[in-house]
């Protein structure tokens, strides 16, 4: 995939400023006891492109995700989203501001139907307040709108046939699709995907890739963590590599893949007694 033109002239070095950053991190750290799991001095995520976040296991990618999205509020440092300081903001408020995440292990609401999963995600619902909830006329029209939007998205995500099934009956790949479609119901500016391809079969994989590039093409920003390098290299416009909590490299995909520091980080963590064993461990 051709890199976004706005990123073409940027030097590929950690912490480099970008022309139109949506997310800016400054001195973001997270300690667990004596271990510093995340230690990012400066990082900018460009608006409107797909940024891939890679790194060996234990590099702090998911921890960083949790910090940025407000799920882990034990971090320090500053980060701004769309120009506003959002450090320490609770997860639900960040989501309403347009930063929506998915999870490494899918979290569909299994005892809600697929359609209910979708409708739940719409923001600003009048019927979500206790007293208006009692009066259907107050929220009925809005609910019908939301249902139309949900049905459109379910169509696009190949889930229309599953509309009225409990989400708990979906397969692993369908859960990924539902999670992504559901995130879109929030109408996010930034979509953060934590290992969107994990446990997805090859046939569905291509579909999911298409959905992710669609997100960018519809003007949204995507930041995703992924272990599958084929995926990262094929859809990312920009790749950030973390190791031991720090950003050790960033740049266009091809540049990062050839970066000695990145190769070191991966091989370094896998130079065990048994290479096969090592790779099993780091990925499970």
């Amino acid at each position: 995939m051709t890199p976004d033109p706005t990123l073409a002239d940027i030097t590929a070095e950690p912490g480099v400023p970008k022309p139109d950053p949506l997310l800016v991190l400054d001195g973001v750290r997270r300690d667990f006891g004596g271990v510093r799991a995340v230690d990012v001095d400066h990082l900018e995520v460009q608006r409107g492109v797909i940024t891939g976040l890679i790194g060996p296991n234990g590099a702090g990618k998911t921890t960083l995700f949790n910090l940025l999205t407000g799920f882990d509020r034990g971090g320090t440092g500053r980060w701004t989203f769309d120009g506003r300081d959002v450090a320490g903001m609770p997860a639900h408020r960040l989501a309403r501001r347009g930063m929506v995440r998915t999870f490494q292990l899918t979290r569909v609401l299994s005892r809600l139907t697929v359609l209910e999963n979708m409708k739940l995600a719409a923001v600003g619902q009048r019927g979500e307040r206790l007293l208006p909830a009692l009066l259907r006329p107050v929220w009925g029209a809005q609910e019908a709108d939301i249902e139309r939007r949900a049905d459109d998205l379910l169509d696009r995500f190949l889930l229309a046939a599953k509309r009225d099934d409990y989400a708990g009956y979906l397969s692993g790949g369908q859960r990924r699709l539902l999670e992504m479609a559901r995130a879109l119901m929030v109408d996010p500016t930034l979509v953060m995907l934590d290992e969107p391809m994990a446990g997805v079969n090859p046939a569905l994989r291509q579909d999911l890739l298409g959905r992710i590039t669609d997100l960018r093409d519809s003007g949204r920003t995507v930041l995703f963590v992924e272990h599958d390098m084929d995926v990262v290299m094929s859809i990312s416009d920009w790749v950030v590599c973390m190791a031991q909590g720090r950003v050790i490299a960033e740049g266009p995909p091809a540049r990062v893949a050839g970066n000695p520091a990145v190769i070191d980080a991966y091989l370094g963590s896998q130079h065990g007694a048994d290479d096969e064993q090592g790779s099993e461990e780091t990925t499970s």
Binding site: P90, H92, V100, T102, A121
Partner: peptide, 26 residues
């Protein structure tokens, strides 16, 4: 009336998975 409303839907979502509900702005 409540459990058939969006309010009740959020409640059931919280019952199923708090973090998922939180990630959707609830």
């Amino acid at each position: 009336l409540l459990v058939r409303s969006p309010w009740g839907r959020v409640l059931r979502a919280v019952r199923d998975d708090e973090d998922a509900a939180r990630s959707l702005g609830k």
